[in-house]
Amino acid sequence: MKRLLSIVTCLLLAVVAAHAKYVPNTKWPYVYEDFTKGTVYSADNQKSEGLLNIHLAGNVLHYVGKDGKVYANDNRRIARVEIGQDAYIVVDNRLMQVVSQKGADVLLKLELADFSQLTQGSGGAYGSSLNSSASNLLSSLDLGGLNRPEHGMMLQEKHDGREIPVSTVYYFAIGGQCIEANKGEVMKYAGEERKAELTRFIKEKKVKWKNEDSLKTVLEYLSR
């Protein structure tokens, strides 16, 4: 009986671990829990494949080199990145995930980390991308993934760091502009002529500005 209970307990723990939400930490400050097979398409139409991830310090693409070390790619040379089933484009020198597309217009997602909270307590602005104060304090965090570390060593330490606060910001890349996906910015983009119509649309569709399905609906409206 004890043996059976022990087996059941182990199985339950395994199920819980499998469904636990991944949370980045200072030893593994990445968007993805593991480096994943992907493809990089450069601005000059070159293509390369490898194990990829996105480092949350500066929103930079990292890859594992043939020597087992982790290297950073220059976002300015990237046109598109595919990591697993996810696709990214570079906007304002930042890698943003493509959530939905309508013709040439897209809904984008940017994941941001606030490292300043780890050194200054709750005084930092949550969800800000790597700000100047955070940049000055990165060295004190013993942040993983910097200075060409060994991938194998990082894997050994990946669960030993402090949790990093991460938030998500959505954007519309539409009509040649990139605007944050919130009511104020969308209203400004629509202009006075469409303000009343857009207000009715938002009310009728009960748009929630942090909900991807709602934002996909807004993208459809704006792309008409």
Rank of each mutant, 00 (worst) to 15 (best):
V99I: 03
K2W: 05
A104Q: 08
C10I: 13
L215H: 01
T39A: 01
A190V: 07
G152C: 00
G123A: 15
S139M: 11
L146N: 11
K66T: 01
Y189N: 00
S100H: 13
P29K: 06
K205Q: 07
M187T: 14
E220I: 02
G38S: 01
T217M: 02
L143K: 13
F115A: 00
Y189P: 08
S48N: 09
G127W: 08
Y171L: 13
L110R: 13
V106M: 13
V81L: 07
G144H: 00
N147D: 11
K195Y: 05
E82S: 10
Y170P: 03
V169S: 03
I83K: 06
A134T: 00
P29Q: 00
D92Q: 01
F201R: 11
C10G: 14
R77V: 11
W209A: 09
R224K: 15
L110H: 14
L143T: 07
K210Q: 15
S132Q: 15
T26L: 10
G176P: 07
T9V: 02
K188I: 09
A43L: 03
K21R: 12
L112H: 03
A134R: 04
L141S: 05
N211T: 02
Q177H: 15
Q120V: 12
L56W: 06
A113L: 01
V81S: 10
I174Q: 09
M1H: 07
T26S: 02
N25K: 10
D105C: 10
G144V: 05
G152Y: 10
S42Y: 05
Y41K: 06
R80A: 12
Y126L: 14
T199G: 15
